[in-house]
Measured scan of single mutants.
Amino acid sequence: TEYKLVVVGAGGVGKSALTIQLIQNHFVDEYDPTIEDSYRKQVVIDGETCLLDILDTAGQEEYSAMRDQYMRTGEGFLCVFAINNTKSFEDIHQYREQIKRVKDSDDVPMVLVGNKCDLAARTVESRQAQDLARSYGIPYIETSAKTRQGVEDAFYTLVREIRQH
């Protein structure tokens, strides 16, 4: 089974770092803004072998026109913010609204991801993020692309959301 996953969120929150940590098991430290990259990885989730087709997208506003296209083809979405960047957390709402509009559905598989949880300088409390996820009816997972904490959990949870859909 193949799953088309799309990673969305503001610029600099760590979308590529999360994806590369999942696929290649290493942490990319330097920031190089993405336009669009796709990665494929075969994994076993709950005993089922599946192929993850992951689209890593641009957070930069100037590429926002490309969003409709990949939102149409994606089956599930990782909505990523950084726990030390309140603005990126506030941006999640717009991504969710755009996904709902493009998919013409209120019920699209999504996982809210709070990345950079290895950093002490948190400005978005776990509780705020949990409340937001609960209001959307989606899971919330904290990750660190640096330490790998929660990385597999985030992507695998999204696959489970798609399966249950």
Results as ranks from 00 to 15, higher is better:
V80G: 02
G76V: 13
A10I: 07
L119F: 14
S126R: 10
I35A: 02
E48G: 08
L55K: 02
D104C: 13
K116G: 15
A129S: 04
V8M: 05
V108Y: 08
C79H: 03
L5Q: 00
H26S: 13
S16A: 00
G12W: 09
A120D: 11
G9S: 01
I141F: 12
C50M: 07
V28D: 13
D153W: 06
V111M: 05
L132D: 04
V159Y: 06
S126E: 10
R163P: 04
I141D: 01
R67Q: 14
V102S: 08
N115K: 00
V80C: 10
M110F: 11
L55I: 12
G150L: 09
M110G: 01
E90W: 07
L119C: 13
C79D: 02
Q21F: 08
K146C: 14
D131P: 03
T73V: 12
G137V: 03
G150C: 10
D106R: 09
N85M: 06
T143Y: 02
M71K: 09
E48I: 05
I92K: 02
Y140T: 01
S135D: 11
V44D: 11
L112N: 02
D118C: 09
S144H: 11
A154Q: 02
I141Y: 07
V43M: 10
C117I: 06
Y156I: 14
F81D: 03
A133S: 05
I138A: 05
Y156N: 15
I20K: 01
Q21R: 07
L18C: 07
A82D: 15
R134P: 02
D153C: 05
S88L: 04
R40K: 02
D118A: 02
Y39M: 00
E2F: 04
H165E: 12
Y70V: 15
E152C: 07
S105I: 13
G76C: 10
D104Y: 07
V13D: 04
D118G: 04
S64I: 09
G47T: 09
K103G: 05
M110T: 03
D107V: 12
D118T: 03
Q164E: 09
N25T: 12
D56Y: 02
M71E: 08
Y70L: 15
T19P: 03
Y70Q: 08
Q24M: 08
Q98A: 13
R72V: 08
R101F: 05
D68R: 06
R148S: 11
D29T: 06
T57A: 04
M110D: 01
A121D: 10
L52C: 11
A120W: 05
N85L: 12
E61T: 14
M71P: 07
Q21M: 11
G14I: 00
E62L: 14
V113M: 08
I54G: 00
T73H: 12
F81M: 12
D68I: 04
I138T: 04
T143L: 15
N25H: 12
V8G: 02
R127I: 09
L55G: 07
V28S: 07
R101C: 09
I162N: 03
G59P: 08
T57F: 05
P33Y: 00
Q128M: 09
A145G: 14
L51Q: 12
A121I: 06
D56K: 01
L22W: 09
S126D: 10
S144C: 15
D53I: 02
Y39K: 00
E48Y: 12
L78Y: 04
L78F: 10
T73N: 14
I20T: 03
E75F: 10
T86P: 14
A17W: 02
D107H: 13
P33K: 04
H26P: 01
T86L: 13
G47R: 06
H26A: 15
V113E: 02
Y39C: 02
R101P: 03
A17C: 05
V111D: 01
Q60P: 14
L112S: 01
E2D: 06
G137F: 03
T19M: 04
K103W: 09
V13K: 01
I83S: 13
G12P: 13
G12I: 12
D68H: 07
L55Q: 04
D91Q: 14
H165M: 13
S105Q: 12
E90H: 07
G9R: 00
E30T: 05
R72Q: 12
T157W: 14
A65H: 09
E36H: 03
I162S: 04
S105P: 06
K116F: 15
D53T: 02
K103A: 08
A145V: 07
C50E: 05
V102T: 07
E142H: 03
H93V: 15
Y63Q: 14
D104Q: 14
N84L: 06
R67S: 15
G12V: 13
I20C: 05
A121F: 05
Q149K: 10
F155R: 00
T1P: 09
Y136I: 12
L119E: 15
A121G: 11
D29R: 06
L52K: 00
P139R: 07
H26L: 15
E36K: 01
Q24D: 07
A10W: 08
G9M: 00
H165N: 11
E30F: 03
N115G: 10
T34Y: 00
V111T: 03
L55P: 00
G11E: 10
V111P: 01
A154C: 09
G74N: 05
V44F: 09
E97F: 03
V13A: 12
Q69R: 10
S144Q: 13
I23K: 11
M110Y: 01
I20F: 01
E125I: 08
E2Q: 04
I35S: 01
S135Y: 11
D118S: 03
T19Y: 00
Q94R: 15
R67N: 14
V6D: 00
E90I: 08
Q149G: 09
D91H: 11
K100V: 09
M110L: 07
I45D: 06
G114I: 03
S126F: 09
Y3M: 06
T34C: 00
R163G: 09
V80H: 02
F77L: 04
Y63H: 10
C50W: 12
T1E: 06
Q149M: 06
K15R: 00
D53A: 03
V113I: 13
P33A: 05
K100T: 06
G150Q: 13
Y70T: 13
I99S: 03
V28Q: 05
I92R: 02
E62A: 15
V13S: 14
Q98C: 11
L119V: 14
R134N: 11
E90C: 07
V159C: 05
Y31A: 03
A154N: 01
G47E: 07
V111C: 05
T1W: 06
V8I: 08
R122G: 13
R67D: 15
V44T: 11
P139K: 06
L112W: 12
D91M: 15
G74F: 08
R101G: 06
V44G: 07
T49Q: 07
K15G: 01
P33T: 02
Q42F: 05
E161Q: 13
Y95N: 05
Q149W: 05
F27N: 01
K4H: 14
Y156V: 14
E142I: 04
G74T: 12
G59M: 03
K41W: 12
T34I: 00
C79M: 14
L78C: 05
T19K: 02
S144M: 06
R134E: 12
P33E: 03
T73F: 12
R134M: 08
L158V: 06
E61H: 15
F89I: 11
L55C: 08
A133W: 04
V113N: 02
L51H: 09
R148E: 13
E97L: 08
K100W: 05
D56A: 00
G59C: 03
G137L: 03
Y31T: 02
Q128K: 10
T86M: 12
Q24C: 13
I162V: 06
L5P: 01
R127C: 10
D153I: 06
A17H: 02
R67F: 14
D118Y: 01
F89Q: 11
V102I: 13
E75R: 06
T49A: 09
M66L: 12
E36Q: 02
C117H: 08
R40H: 04
